[in-house]
């Protein structure tokens, strides 16, 4: 059945996903070289559960329906079980990205019941994975975590950060993921953000690498169709030019442009409680507010103040993409975050 686009507090199965990416802590048991949030074992700050709950009630009522836990390692968040229980009861779809190494404990196995999908990070075959993770044996521990998910019949997928060193392993990765029983293989190109800027500057993806990834991802997608979803976070410029509404909520014919969840379908909450539109790393000057101090007019006030500017920024960023004929394959997330911090007005 077709639905209108104006659902309020709709359950995830009945509406497009409108996602809250939650970073309840940046504490992590690892210190990965490519980590965009620069997470590490040394960071201690955690989100206040009660403040978070209050905001999540408000956001659900405003149309958000999908929780995507990230970090840090979300399993290190002390209130994770209480949080997941709460969001599940509210009607959210719960998903989590994890390094998978801590899934074996009784506490962590128990909270799997509240998760709809678990995505485990894998950086390639064991040697490459351990190198990126900075820990010998990390691959083996991750694989043990995957076996826990299999034992619980929990739908899971893998997330892979594609680097100029790992694209040659994508065929291997497809086989590995399918053999393990994954339902999702998400390929995300390395972005020069967070720790990657210091640790992996030599691994900047150029257009040629992105073409290679794009071609291989499309091959894998057809190879595993019906068995495992293969998604690359890449778009061809021509495709984006034909269908800008994929990334521009203001260009969608059925968007209610007075509702934040319709024009900004992802918001991010970091470990300090700051709410950012679109993606981690987006210009902090355009932050929506904080979960520690908000009222029920937050989203409406934000749109009234910023919608015109953001719509113009989106159009400028897209124009930049269309006009740059040297770059065919686009990592829109990277382009958009960069543009938010370094806006360049498109030439006429």
């Amino acid at each position: 059945m077709m639905n209108a686009c104006s659902e309020k507090g709709s359950p995830a199965y009945a509406a497009p996903f409108r996602t809250i990416q939650l970073h309840p802590t940046r504490r992590c048991n690892l210190c990965c070289k490519h980590c965009y949030s620069s997470s590490s074992p040394l960071l201690k700050e955690q989100l206040n559960l009660e403040a978070l709950k209050a905001f999540l009630v408000y956001a659900y009522d405003q149309g958000f329906n999908n929780i995507s836990l990230s970090g840090g390692e979300p399993l290190l968040y002390k209130d994770l079980e209480a949080l997941l229980q709460f969001t599940k009861k509210l009607g959210y779809n719960n998903t989590m990205a994890t390094n998978g190494m801590l899934l074996g404990s009784d506490r962590n196995q128990a909270l799997l019941q509240y998760l709809d999908l678990v995505a485990v990070s894998v950086d390639g075959p064991p040697v490459l994975h351990d190198y990126i993770r900075g820990q010998k044996g990390a691959f083996e521990k991750m694989q043990k975590g995957v076996h826990v998910l299999q034992q619980h019949n929990k739908p899971f997928g893998f997330i892979h950060t594609v680097t100029p060193d790992s694209w040659k392993e994508l065929i291997w990765l497809g086989t590995f993921a399918a053999d393990e029983g994954a339902r999702l293989l998400q390929l995300h190109p390395l972005e020069m953000f967070g720790r990657a800027r210091q640790e992996l500057p030599q691994w900047t993806n150029d257009d040629l690498h992105l073409h290679r990834t794009y071609i291989l991802a499309n091959y894998l997608s057809s190879k595993y169709r019906g068995r495992m979803v293969v998604q690359a976070d890449l778009l061809h410029r021509d495709y984006l030019e034909s269908f800008p509404q994929i990334v521009n909520g203001f260009a969608r014919s059925c968007s209610d442009q007075h509702r934040l969840a319709h024009v900004i379908d992802t918001i991010v909450i970091d470990e300090k409680g700051i709410i950012t539109p679109f993606a981690y790393g987006f210009d902090p000057q355009l932050s929506i507010g904080t979960i520690n101090n908000f009222d029920e007019t937050l989203f409406d006030r934000y749109l009234a103040q910023h919608a015109t500017r953001i719509e113009r920024m989106l159009e400028d960023a897209l124009s930049g993409v269309y006009n740059n004929k040297e770059q065919d394959i686009i990592n829109w997330n990277e382009v958009w975050v960069y543009h938010s911090r370094h806006p360049v007005k498109a030439s006429a």
Partner: peptide, 30 residues
């Protein structure tokens, strides 16, 4: 390489083909 990618995108633009944008760190399956 550019021509191969272009052929892929032409196919996508002209049929019932699947695409999506995913934001980093967000697993979406459905």
């Amino acid at each position: 390489v550019r021509n191969i990618s272009k052929e892929i995108v032409n196919l996508k633009k002209n049929g019932l083909l699947i695409d999506q944008v995913f934001v980093k760190g967000i697993p979406r399956l459905d």
